[in-house]
Design a binder for these strands. Sequence first.
DNA 1: CTGAAAGCGCTTACAG
DNA 2: CTGAAAGCGCTTACAG
Lengths: 337, 337
Amino acid sequence: MKMSDVAKLANVSPATVSRVLSNPELVSKETRKKVLDVINQVNYKPHIVARQFRTQETKMILVVVPDITSAFFSKVLRGIEHMAIDHGYQVILGDTEHDINRELEYINLLHQKQVDGMVLLTARIDKEKLQDISAHFPMVLACEYMDGLDVPTVSIDNISSARKATEHLIQLGHKRIAHITGPMNIILSRDRLKGYRQAMLGHDIPIDSAYIQEGELTFESGYDQTMKLLALEAPPTAIFAFNDEIAMGAMKAAKDSGLSIPNELAIIGFDNIKMAMMVEPGLTTIDQPKYAIGKKAMELLLKQINNESIKKKKFVLKDELIIRQTCGAEQQTVSHV
Amino acid sequence: MKMSDVAKLANVSPATVSRVLSNPELVSKETRKKVLDVINQVNYKPHIVARQFRTQETKMILVVVPDITSAFFSKVLRGIEHMAIDHGYQVILGDTEHDINRELEYINLLHQKQVDGMVLLTARIDKEKLQDISAHFPMVLACEYMDGLDVPTVSIDNISSARKATEHLIQLGHKRIAHITGPMNIILSRDRLKGYRQAMLGHDIPIDSAYIQEGELTFESGYDQTMKLLALEAPPTAIFAFNDEIAMGAMKAAKDSGLSIPNELAIIGFDNIKMAMMVEPGLTTIDQPKYAIGKKAMELLLKQINNESIKKKKFVLKDELIIRQTCGAEQQTVSHV
DNA sequence: CTGAAAGCGCTTACAG
DNA sequence: CTGAAAGCGCTTACAG
């Protein structure tokens, strides 16, 4: 059943059927009713690919995620998704599993006009390429921020958040503070490390390079790196972990080593994934406004797709220090200025 | 830049360019080289929507998920995704957030030919409708199983797994065993409740209806339901939770009530999400082969898309009882027959 | 091995 | 307010 069949049954032209579907206000009430009756009767569904082909837009957007199983990204995705659906867009998920080649493959979908735009939640490809793509297609970078990159971006200020996390430990009297970073080819890892450094130096605490351990973004890695740290001659009394999952690995390592948290080892995470409140003791962490980041990113993407001008390109949303039990501070919430 | 432009530059017909791209073996070596050179030189990318329109297939499949933030489903998704990509298919994600209307909307993508097939990881719509769709479009139901439904299905045997989980508690000497179920409009909830009943009755343990609490599929709900159970005059000594997230809520409730796990309250979960091994004490649970379920489901979908016959429609994969610390049994792994 | 031509199912500028 | 007609960019059956 195609449009011309419906047209015949309703005694109108295909053009009219098309209008009833896409611009009903252009059609008289009676004609509209006549056509709609036929459509309902035969349960006609327009062939969307034909429409996409004709209008040269797919009403689909691509979201490139480094790890779909991550609790953090799935929340950002929700924000993107809701905004997308509200505006008639479908979301295609591109899970790269941290593989730059798969990232490139997904970006191909833009070139092939399979999607109208793209939200990157990760960017391993280099700045120039990114810039080039952004010049030709609607695109937004979310969660990460690249200095000097002329692409619309939504994220928190990771450096300042990391500084704040570290300072929280300093304020609680810690000096031997370790940092378990993520892989250094991820911008976020470098940013959070910067924040850690700033906090330490800002308080005249020398940084012991043995206290900086590069790990993977996993629970297991958090466990392993912590075990290494605890085996040092002068083990740290506190750990700032790149994210909550790593922090939980650190918690497990502490427990397995017979150390009580927070008394013998304080731990702070990053992201505030749901699990952070479930573990025992509750994990102190930096909350990212995950859903809001997703929404804002999609909003910026829609503007580009609709050729609206974007005055501001860099959006920095607020984080929040969530104090639970793993650092020993009294429980409260401190908002970020 | 379109195909005809490439054709002109290479001094061939558009048909030949098309062949070079889709059926290179039909083109002579020299012509092929000539065309490929031009393609590379001008960085031509075919317009995929045009191709989709012409060939009437999109090379996209839809996966309908009830909750994209769930650790369980994201693993199943990975399995689907890998299988899909290996066969040249893209995955569109339909997150219903347990809303039957959004489920129906996504199913519309099939009718509109926007996708070549669909994997349902949830089915709230009724059996007849499901059957009807399956008769017209490639479709697979995964994770859930509907009795008497003539649609390819991949899942574990939830009833027997739930029975096994309950029996694990019985074997450890428990008689006052509670079950926190999921919402009763979800098939899986009903199945697992059935398994619980079978185990109890099979061991001549009377079922106290107060011991069966219906909750939502969340940590919070697990917490609340457990608090209710613990407030009973004769509180249960063990809880079988519908899934791990609920079980972790139960753990938290036990701790907040000053009960030690497993000595004063034993808890068993379901799914074996990653978090189950991270919590303290480690959560005893039923492992579902999440990745394998996803792969198998996609495999069945591909068969349908390619019009291969499916001899067997119901695939039941093996679960596994994972013994950790929350039930007090010695740690080991018992495979399911 | 290659080309000319038809056609996939819509939408929209144009004319009336 | 409505219709006739062109055309979006490919693929493929057919002919040579």
